[in-house]
Structures are given as structure tokens and as C-alpha cells.
Amino acid sequence: MQEILNKLIDRYAIEPIQENRHNQAFVTIEKNRLPDVLTWLRDYEDYTHLAFITAVDYPEIEKIQLTYMLHNYILHTDLGLRVLLDRTRPEMVSIHHLWKQVATYQRELREMFGIDFPGSPGLQENFALEGWKDIPPMRRDFDTKEYSEKTYFPRPGRQTHDPKEYMKEKLYPSAKEDK
């Protein structure tokens, strides 16, 4: 593990590196260097398997973090490459020329996070949501509960009581006009 990390540092001067386990590490790299690094890892360092691509929304820092998870079948090590995208117009270079199946992940990410991958095959096709018009549901500012209640009308007839308020009403109603 350390070897590949040192190489990454030497070749691409990548910092910082976060090592989770002895066989798993994450590095954050610049957006436009990613295809380079991925190609090098795939072709020269035996990181031939792209396990998944996933994203995390960070509205606090106005970024969306993309993670590309690579696996090396010879050393059995995992390497995660992280890229930070601008949250207002997230756009990333498509890497479907490196791994064909990535197009599916990219479709999903476009739908769930609104990340654009120009040139990725079938990007505009529906993935799981058909005809979705709201903000992408995996964005953190999307309130799924509110959306659900608005759209899927839960069965009526539910009513609950707060023990504190209920006891007040029952036991000392005179204090009702408090505060």
C-alpha cells in the first residue's frame, strides 16, 4: 500500500492521503488530473477493477465529493480517488473509455446528484426515477420526508399527543396561558 502511495506522491504530488486500513487508502486529487491518474493506475499498477463510483453532497462547503474506488486483484488493496466538484454546476470528465460499465454509474450519479458527465453514453436516459422534476433526491438539501408527504399522501387519521402538553391540559389547565 505504502509503495503505491509513495508513487502517487512522487508522480503526481498528491496530498493529502488518508489511510483507513492497511489495505485501503483514499487520496484527494484535482479534477482534471483524474483520468490521467486512473489510466496510469489501471494500465501500470494493476488497479484493474473499478469497484464503484459514488458521491457525497457537502452543502456546508458547497462541494460534491466523487469517489472512484479501485481494486488491485494482485495485492488485494483498495485505492479511493476523491474529487471535489463545485456544487452549483457539478461536472466531471466521463471515464467510460477506461471502463465501459462506468456509464451506468454516471447515469445514476446524474440522476441522483445532478452531476453532469459530458459524453457519457445514455446519460440522459432514466435510471431509477422516471420523469423526476425536483432537485436530485440525494442532494442533502432535498427533504425526502416533506416530498413524500406532499406527493404520496399518507393515510389520514393519525393523531398523536405530547405527554407534556397533554398532562398540562389535564392536570393544570389554569397555567395554560403561560409564556
Binding site: 405530547d162 405527554p163 407534556k164 402538553e165 398532562m167 398540562k168 392536570l171 393544570y172 397555567a175 403561560d178
Partner: peptide, 12 residues
């Protein structure tokens, strides 16, 4: 945070 205590507290 059940709030059972509030009713019992004389000062609520």
C-alpha cells in the same frame, strides 16, 4: 424527554 416530570413539578 418524556416530560412526565413537568406536571408534577409545582412550578412546572
Amino acid at each position: 424527554e418524556c416530560g412526565l416530570c413537568v406536571a408534577t413539578c409545582p412550578a412546572h
